[in-house]
């Protein structure tokens, strides 16, 4: 084989490997739609997404996933509320304040948290968090929004923290020096220079953390309580979309209406995470601040 032929051969080999993940994704999306779309012959799109009743096994069944969507959003919202301050502040501490030894320890602990299997976190939520909630607030069950949000937040923190940290590290040293040279304290420099300069990266981190939380299945299956109704308080149980799919898929007859409804739920979930990822991508490009001086 000539040298050129070899180069071309190698180029295409790599191209094919790169293509594999694209093809796999396309096939998954295709089958998701093939299995999900038939539900709209049984129920209209509007009644599916905004329907208030999810009784897929009744006769006649009700396929309204609005309570599930609300469930997903509620736990994601509260998880974000908890995870963003913790993740971002931890990232600021690690990248700007901590002495080197503490920095290394903290970083590896947070990475370890990312490595915990979700079933372990779910188990923690069931046997530790749930009884505490139940006793403290005198509730019928500790498996509820608060519990799910706390555990989801634990899962989102590593994502938010490590991506924010990268964004903070990327702030040029020159900005910091300029600020210190004007008589700013470390705190003022962090708040007024470093944080704003890293904001686009931090927003990306938050969006990706939310995408992680909304798609997470095992935790919400184990600790959200599983009630398919619009919650009235943060101590109510909910049934987020992934939990519903995971819990019911094994019980549904192949290609029944219920089966199609679950795939359609998966489609909704797919679009939601896609939206989060697109927003994250947009934010990271749109608000990217030009680096230090260009000559």
């Amino acid at each position: 084989m000539t040298r050129q032929a070899k180069e071309i051969f190698i180029k295409y080999i790599f191209f094919i490997f790169a293509l594999v993940s694209v093809i796999v994704l396309a096939m998954i999306v295709f089958s998701l739609f093939r299995e999900g779309l038939p539900i709209f012959k049984v129920v209209s799109f509007k009644n599916f997404v905004f329907g208030m009743e999810w009784y897929p096994t009744y006769d006649p069944p009700d396929f309204g996933i609005f309570p599930l969507i609300v469930g997903s959003f509620v736990v994601t919202f509260f998880a974000t509320l908890i995870a963003v301050p913790l993740g971002v502040l931890a990232a600021i501490y690690i990248s700007e304040i901590a002495p080197r030894a503490i920095k290394e320890i903290l970083k590896s602990v947070i990475e370890l948290l990312a490595g915990l299997p979700s079933v372990v976190l779910g188990f923690f939520g069931m046997v530790v968090v749930a009884p505490i909630l139940q006793e403290t607030f005198d509730l019928p069950t500790g498996l509820n929004i608060v519990n799910a949000s706390v555990i989801l937040a634990l899962m989102a923190i590593p994502t938010i923290s490590s991506i924010s940290e990268d964004a903070l590290y990327a702030v040029p040293q020159e900005f910091k020096e300029a600020s210190y040279a004007l008589g700013a304290t470390k705190y003022e420099t962090i708040i007024k220079v470093i944080f704003p300069a890293a904001l686009s990266g931090i927003s990306t981190a938050v969006m990706l953390g939310m995408a992680r939380a909304i798609g997470e299945t095992m935790v919400v299956l184990m600790v959200a309580g599983g009630s398919a109704a619009i919650p009235e308080s943060i101590f109510d149980s909910v049934r987020p979309m992934p939990a519903s799919i995971a819990a019911e898929m094994g019980e549904t007859p192949y290609r029944s209406a219920h089966y199609h409804a679950l795939f359609a739920t998966g489609m909704v979930l797919f679009f939601l995470t896609l939206t989060f990822n697109i927003i994250a991508d947009y934010v990271s490009h749109k608000f990217k601040q030009t680096g230090s001086a260009t000559l």
């Binding site: 040029p172 020159e174 900005f175 020096e177 300029a178 600020s179 040279a181 004007l182 008589g183 220079v193 704003p196 300069a197 601040q289 030009t290 230090s292 001086a293 000559l295």
Partner: peptide
Amino acid sequence: KKIGMVFQKPNPFP
């Protein structure tokens, strides 16, 4: 605050 500094590379804040 009393002794200001200008750096080698122009470094305005963004």
